[in-house]
């Protein structure tokens, strides 16, 4: 009874096809947006403070660097799409350079001789997603 001889096909309507097209176009569009480096949610910003004063705010994204001067010395603070790091410093200890890149989650980079503090502000991104699965 269930498998009848008279086979009829489902009649898909024009609206069906339009909807399917829209869903797949939206999937492709959002995928392309993210693959091109599109970000969502709160923009992450690297904050550079010197002697307690905020001197730079660098949004994460394209790789850029700024020079921060202190008396005779200087630090170069670099950012890319994922984090911030100090790429050059002429301070005596170079601890700041050796600290490497930070990705958020409450971390900060400190250069005591140049009274420099660098940290990230904004949504934690990947870290939050990882925490979810635990």
């Amino acid at each position: 009874m269930f498998f009848c001889d008279k086979m009829e096909k489902v009649h898909m309507t024009r609206a069906d096809w339009t909807l399917i097209f829209c869903v797949f176009a939206a999937a492709a569009g959002t995928a392309l947006f993210f693959l091109q480096g599109g970000r969502i949610g709160q923009e992450r910003v690297a904050v550079v403070e010197q002697d307690g004063q905020e001197v730079y705010r660098l949004p994460l994204g394209e790789e850029t660097a700024v020079e921060v001067f202190w008396e005779d010395g200087c630090n170069v603070v670099s950012v890319d799409g994922r984090g911030v790091w100090i790429s050059y410093a002429d301070c005596p200890d170079r601890i700041c350079v050796r600290q490497g890149k930070i990705f958020g989650g409450g971390q900060s980079i400190v250069c005591l001789p140049h009274r420099l503090v660098v940290y990230l502000e904004g949504a934690a991104g990947e870290e939050t997603l990882d925490a979810m699965t635990d």
């Binding site: 797949f24 999937a27 492709a28 995928a31 993210f34 969502i40 949610g41 949504a123 997603l129």
Partner: peptide, 23 residues
Amino acid sequence: VTTTLQVFYYLPWLLLSGGITGI
């Protein structure tokens, strides 16, 4: 639940899978 919008990075994949199973 996570108070972050980052989960929407999964949107393309979820639209695709939802669409195909739906069809």
